[in-house]
Design a protein around this nucleic acid. Structure first.
Lengths: 339, 339
DNA sequence: CTGAAAGCGCTTACAG
DNA sequence: CTGAAAGCGCTTACAG
């Protein structure tokens, strides 16, 4: 019922081989026959059967993306970047998201086997052991936001360190000598890098001040608790840098309850630039991550790995972040309405 | 290099036919051979070649999702619902998002042809004409949030009408006799349904009051302008219902500038329950849409359409919404901190 | 430049 | 219950 290459060949009075060559741009076809075949194929609305083609070419023209449950904005921005880049390269995108644990992620990864030419992997459950067990060595893959040092895969990270470093410096430059930090989960790669950025910026630009770190876990609630601790502190802090925006939101609430004004009494900053950041009062100074760029770069990296299987892997690449200054760290009398 | 069904057959000293039957659960195999074959296949890490299987079965076990650029949270929730349901059914998910115009959407739809067993389509660019031109009649498809009346496809909508109706009633019940409405884009299906819900609830529950509608276009900016108009009105309104949350956010800003307090002077409500809704001050009363449910239902509908090609289509199905009451419509002295 | 033929890795009537 | 064989729709050496 569906029209196949044989139908086109019959109609054009040529062999199926010629149809294949004409449609795939082989030079071994006269322009005239190519034209004729192309127009007949178009008239018949012929679409090559992708499975048949994959069977013989060993290519699916599809990239798989393995993603955990992610915050909405991050997820959609990432997919958007990946999707746009894939479209530009004529590649399809097979996604599997929402994996609660390592077993689910493993099952999803295995299920994609043979259906994709390469993989984009972003998952807290992924380590070297996991990949060895679930990803065939022959599958090109790019790891996103991973602590893994691999010679086998490309690794693409957000510049958590640089972003945190720059933000700490911004707060210090603004005259807030003592900057406290609210950390993220101990086992979280992003959190570790951000804390390191904070520590080193403090050591570099405020060598006399001591770094003050309160524990958190990226949740709003943990930010609230950290905020209460900081508000009660005997030596009041002049600036707080939370390792992510949600904790900054929680911290802000604690400060409000404690009667501390932001930014007049304390400056406050977060990390991620989630949409909420600009709508809370005061709008939150934060570090913006170029998520769509991350997705685009990742897609382009797998595409290259697929096209040139032998080439050397890049060292881990890192994507820049931007400091976004808003009212929460800007005590200059300007109104604190949404930016 | 990759292990095929022949390798398993050779190892198990049976024909490839038996391997196929054993692995696919055909009853025509002794339990003992099935066991032996299964364990050998596992040991060899055999994975059936999906293209080869698709070629013969005419099934890809894949659902395509065509999505426009969507607000982050909506997009990720929708994908999440679809993904979870697909996994439960052993189906893969091919996505194509971020289509700026009808041509891009058409190209994406055609590119998926032959790679999917069915389609989920959510796009403002899609109408009957578009589908006739770009979607083969034989492809099962479900339309999400579409005004289309189709006997060929299932249509799944959010209950915009019911949600707006319930919200209007809530505002009236709370004693705000005059409820004004900020509308969305004229050509937007959601916006139309929400406005209808507002009008009919007003007619039903406040027959003496006149419906007051200010135009908007779903942007924050348009909500801001509407808010300025309403604040200056000779007859001050007691409650404002914006057709989406972003406009409510803009309206809130205009009210703040005009010195109007929410909810003491005016109650305010939106629609969508975007994450920002609970973080602005005061937290916004709104209509929550069960987006993940929408995705799950849609996936299950295509799956059914694929399994039972002949069955009658459902009439357009509709998914319920919930009114979420927060501080912006609750002048009861409770603190207006985030809920 | 063009065609006949082999083969990619599966599934499934058809025999036995 | 099991196997030999055909065939799904393509691509690509191999001849000519």
């Amino acid at each position: 019922m569906a029209v196949t290459i044989r139908d086109v060949a019959r109609e054009a009075r040529v062999s199926v081989a010629s149809v294949s060559r004409a449609l795939n741009g082989s030079p071994a076809v006269t322009d005239e026959t190519r034209q004729r075949i192309a127009s007949i194929a178009a008239r018949l609305r012929y679409v090559p059967h992708s499975a048949a083609r994959s069977l013989i070419t060993k290519r699916t023209q599809t990239i798989g993306a393995l993603l955990p449950d992610l915050y909405g904005e991050f997820f959609s921005e990432l997919i958007r970047g990946i999707d746009l880049a894939a479209r530009a390269k004529g590649l399809h995108l097979l996604v599997s998201s929402s994996h609660g644990d390592a077993d689910e992620a493993a099952a999803a990864l295995r299920a994609m086997q043979g259906r994709v030419d390469g993989m984009l992997i972003l998952s807290p459950h992924v380590d070297a052991e996991f990949l060895r067990a679930n990803l065939p060595e022959s599958t090109p893959a790019v790891l996103l936001n991973s602590a893994l040092k691999s010679t086998q895969f490309d690794v693409l990270n957000i510049d958590n360190y640089g972003g945190a470093h720059a933000m700490t410096r911004h707060l210090l430059d603004a005259g807030h000598a003592g900057v406290a930090f609210i950390g993220g989960p101990d086992d979280n790669f992003d959190a570790q890098q951000r804390e390191r950025g904070y520590r080193e910026a403090m050591a570099a630009f405020a060598p006399k001040a001591t770094a003050k770190i309160v524990a958190g876990d990226f949740s709003e609630e943990s930010g609230y608790h950290a905020g209460r601790v900081l508000a009660k502190d005997s030596k009041p802090v002049r600036a707080v840098f939370a390792a992510n925006d949600m904790m900054a939101v929680g911290c802000l609430r604690a400060f409000a309850e404690a009667g501390l004004r932001v930014p007049q009494d304390v400056a406050l900053a977060g990390f991620d630039d989630i949409p909420i950041a600009r709508y809370i009062t005061p709008a939150l100074t934060t570090v913006r991550v170029r998520i769509a760029d991350l997705g685009r770069s990742a897609l382009e990296s797998v595409a290259t790995a697929i096209e040139k299987p032998g080439r050397a892997r890049n060292a881990a690449q890192t994507l820049a972040c931007d400091v976004v200054v808003r009212a929460s760290s800007r005590d200059d009398g300007r109104p604190t309405k949404p930016v």
